[in-house]
Amino acid sequence: MSYDLVLLPSGAAASPAEVDAYLTAQDGRQAAEAVTEVAAELDRRNAALPEVDAFLGAPAADGVLGGALFVSTPYDAIGHTRNLLFELGTPRGYAVWDPQLAWLADPAGAVAAAVTHGGAGEFPYLTKELVDAWIPELGQPGPYLIAETGDQVYIQTYRHPDGHYDLEYREGSADKHFAATCGDARIVADLIWGWATGDRSGFETLDWRQLTF
């Protein structure tokens, strides 16, 4: 079995229904130069690897559809392939759509960060839409999310089986490392996004304690 990922222009859609409408409208349209270039580079990199290490389930060039690019990848190469789509697509103004999880990673309005999703791997930026989708669904085997924007500058959360969250943030030094707990996924998502955008106005909703080690 394979896993599908899709590149589409940033801003072309903001919901699963809009993604479907955009992709349907691409049928029969001339291939866009940007996705043609990305497909060629994916095929080049894939061909340079031993067959056992291949990350494409089918030639990427076959997945070009108008302004979109459909990429098929083995399950054990999902993270690698998605990272390549970010690497090649983001500078060209493209978003990454995951149709299995209905996640749209669009660089428009994103905050650059080293993001680790415990169940899905690494992402190069954070958006409000992704945070809102991720936080309520965190679960085993990796029910955590970390967003780091600098050396020892990060926010992270862990969702417990009963649904409550541990939340921590650190601003670069041990005396600026705080923790709290919260039972509301929406509050956690809002605080993570607020932290990423420099808005701390909502932090007073929780009882923070300084961490000491």
Rank of each mutant, 00 (worst) to 15 (best):
A189C: 03
E33L: 10
S72E: 15
L5V: 07
D199T: 08
P143T: 10
D207T: 12
E122Y: 11
A12K: 02
N83R: 11
P59V: 02
T181P: 02
A47C: 09
G66S: 05
V111Y: 03
L101D: 14
T127Q: 09
G142Y: 00
G66L: 04
A31D: 15
L56C: 04
T24W: 14
L69W: 02
G89A: 04
G172D: 13
G118M: 06
E37L: 12
E51N: 11
Y154V: 08
F203K: 05
A120T: 12
E129H: 09
E33F: 09
S10L: 08
Y3N: 04
T197Y: 01
R159C: 08
P16S: 08
M1V: 11
L167F: 03
F86Y: 09
T212L: 12
T81C: 06
R186C: 10
L206D: 02
V64K: 01
A60S: 00
T116V: 13
A77S: 13
R29N: 15
L69T: 01
D151I: 10
E122W: 10
V35H: 02
G150H: 03
L69V: 06
G142F: 06
L138Y: 01
D132L: 12
A174V: 14
Q140S: 14
E51Y: 11
G198Y: 08
G89I: 02
G93A: 04
G109C: 05
A13W: 00
A95W: 01
A17C: 06
Y75H: 15
A110T: 07
G89H: 04
Q26Y: 07
Q26I: 01
E204H: 13
A77C: 12
H160R: 12
L130E: 12
L88D: 02
P161N: 06
Y165C: 00
A39R: 04
G89E: 01
Y3G: 04
D184E: 14
L126N: 00
